[in-house]
Design a protein around this nucleic acid. Sequence first.
RNA 1: GCACCGUUCGUCUAGGGGUUAGGACGUAUCCCUUUCACGGAUAAAACACGGGUUCGAUUCCCGUACGGUGUACCA
Length: 511
Amino acid sequence: MKKPVRVRFAPSPTGPLHIGGLRTALYNYLFARHYKGTMILRIEDTDQSRYVPGAEEYIRQSLQWCQIELDESPWQGGPCAPYRQSERKHLYAQYVQQLLESGHAYYAFDTPEELEQARQRTKAEGEEFQYNAAVRMKMKNALSLPASQTEQLLKAGTPYVIRFKVPQGKIVRFDDLIRGEVVVSSDTIDDKVLLKSDGMPTYHLANVVDDYLMNISHVIRGEEWLPSTPLHVLLYKAFGWESSMPQFAHLPLLLKPEGEGKLSKRDAKQYGFAVFPLQWTDPQTGEIWQGFREDGYLPEALINFLALLGWNPGTEQEIFSMEELIAAFSLEKVSKAGARFDINKAKWFNQQYLKAMPEALLAQMLLEELNARAMPCTKEKALQIVQLMKDRISFVRDILIQGAFFFQAPTTYESETVARKWNATTAQALEAFAIALEQEPKEFTPTAIKQTLNEVLSKMNIKLGGVLPALRLAITGTSSGPDLMEIIAICGRRETISRIKTALQALPITH
RNA sequence: GCACCGUUCGUCUAGGGGUUAGGACGUAUCCCUUUCACGGAUAAAACACGGGUUCGAUUCCCGUACGGUGUACCA
């Protein structure tokens, strides 16, 4: 009997959603949709001290921007509501009580200071402190203390935590859908805190209880959870929920572009690219973190890029729509090793999506960029520019740089091109061309312009190739770009003449 | 330190007991374009190392090295 597929993405609202988290959400979503299952979002806000206002809303907007749809969440509700762990507090207390009664958990009264001292002591001996079977009887808890004293402490309102009593000498094994069988000795696991002194559960308790209560069939999460999964398995057993335990799949991490460690927000600053889907302003420091959206990435491109970072269908297809990803996705094809983050590839995907986009839509995006900069432009002109530029850009914004001359006459001229391509002959030719343009009543299309230019040149007995670079220089200030006749047509007759005249005055003739 | 996970071109990856080890990004060259880009073509570029198993290992097993993650009353 196979359980219906129910997966969850469980971020904690401690800041903006990281790109690695976004990929985890994506894989969960693809898996859910592939199996016609349910995609759930659960907010893991059990650490009140790390709660960041706005983070939850940021997560919502990021997923929405990426078209990752949710079936159940705090924002839309669902059969397992509430979906915020802070609102489920009473449930955890109830379940931890069950563990207390069955002897799988115990009260512990060690203060943070005492624990810190114990850690220091063990560290001095060259080892790492573990609150486990070997030391638990030396600590201050319901196991080491006489029952009467425990009762007294509780009655006196002494702060306590509830710890899991990890069984000794047990072999814990589980099947990871990506990594295969994982085997760990229970002796390497310590007596983790289940319920904190503020009455909130830790991640370990909360995720097990909630996944059980929400009928989660597959836990798809980052590899950083792999070491604590044996503990979770032990918890399922202690609760007697082994038969309904979800299957686990631990995703490889996203690594720094170079050097060591996983991708962090610091890398964003260092390498100058975004690691967050949307721009984020830190409410405490006011610091601004760039986002993929604001950097000019299309959500489809970001998703395509992210999907292929750690997963591959085994074919040579590179471009995938969300529907295609859903159809092709499987956990078996997720790779095991961490993937280095390469922003170049993301750029390439964006370029591909831009090229494939309807021109009218591109024109509209260009218009928006221009409006944001108070640069006037008509719809028609934007469309023409886009048609000319779409194959040469990775971002719509590139048009403003590579095609700056569409919006403003050049103020400087590429000096190397001036030196090589600007001379007395070209200047004469351009002057004649300008005069011809003034007199020609003809339509101002690329072909007509070219004809006019050819007529002028043939009269002067000058070859087209000799003056084209100079003309381009006068119009654009550079030596490269799309078809010059097209550019001139877009700029218009009057502007073209004006630019030629300006150049003739501005550029000295040295040869 | 201990535990767990991993290791194919610079990067993302395909493959899998016998292959010219395939693709993509990036890089280089050429073609196209009197420019540049796009596009096309070509090239350089990889199975971490050492032992097994085997007729044969990049592929399977074991070590080593290296890397990653975890080791909180954080998630």
